[in-house]
């Protein structure tokens, strides 16, 4: 109910404060949630991945997240500095269905917010909810350390409710993953992102230099 109520405010808010205002609002909601969930520390990637599988990390509040351990991210020295993770179902899918059956349709501002975010922040949103998701994960990553090193979360790809996709090829190039492989992941997953050590020197980045 609260989710549908918040969405019903979006149109009104976008008309009064502009779509930029809605972006700021969603970003603050995501940021506030992440900050209040507190810090986490893990000895290594295996313990983090187990915590994720068991739903103990802050990332798990979004639903079932799979660590794709066959897709390790390595740095220039060949050390593992992160992995790719995939969210099975977007947490907002049920909300979108609930809106369809209660209010009728998503507010027009939904696509306007996503478009503005893609133009002014980064080209990774398929709907307005991506703003809250992506900001939430970025903030959560800052609060988690693995072997005393804090993390970064990078958005790689996502699939919207009606099938539209966004794949960030630049980010994939940096971590050395083929975009077509990630595209095939979107058949089974709604959102794909990388979690890695903050400041790690990646192979793709050194090639760019």
């Amino acid at each position: 109910m609260l989710d549908v109520a918040l969405v019903s405010l979006i149109q009104d808010m976008s008309e009064k404060a502009g779509v930029e205002g809605t972006i700021q609002y969603w970003a603050r909601v995501g940021e506030s949630l992440a900050k209040r969930m507190g810090k986490e520390a893990y000895m290594g990637w295996p313990s983090f991945n187990v915590a994720l599988r068991e739903g103990r990390t802050a990332f798990s509040i979004e639903g079932s997240v799979t660590a794709l351990t066959d897709l390790a991210i390595t740095d220039v020295d060949g050390d593992v500095v992160g992995y790719i993770y995939a969210l099975e179902t977007c947490v907002f899918n049920p909300t979108i269905v609930r809106i369809r059956y209660s209010v009728g349709e998503l507010p027009r501002a939904d696509s306007a917010v996503a478009e503005e975010y893609n133009n002014s922040v980064r080209d990774t949103a398929v709907c307005n909810f991506c703003v809250i998701h992506q900001r939430f994960r970025e903030e959560v990553a800052k609060n988690i350390s693995i072997a005393d090193q804090s993390l970064d979360c990078i958005q790689l790809a996502n699939r919207g409710f009606s099938g539209e996709t966004k794949i960030t090829e630049d980010a994939l190039k940096k971590i050395g993953i083929n975009p077509e492989y990630v595209r095939s992941l979107l058949r089974n997953y709604a959102c794909v992102y990388a979690i890695m050590m903050r400041g790690a020197r990646l192979k793709g980045e050194s090639e760019e230099e």
Binding site: M1, L2, D3, S32, L33, G63, V91, P94, T95
Partner: peptide, 17 residues
């Protein structure tokens, strides 16, 4: 049940907000 189930992610985020 699906239609009246809430969205815990949004509910918690909204409570904190």
């Amino acid at each position: 049940k699906f239609l009246i189930d809430d969205n815990p992610f949004v509910d918690v985020a909204a409570c904190l907000f």
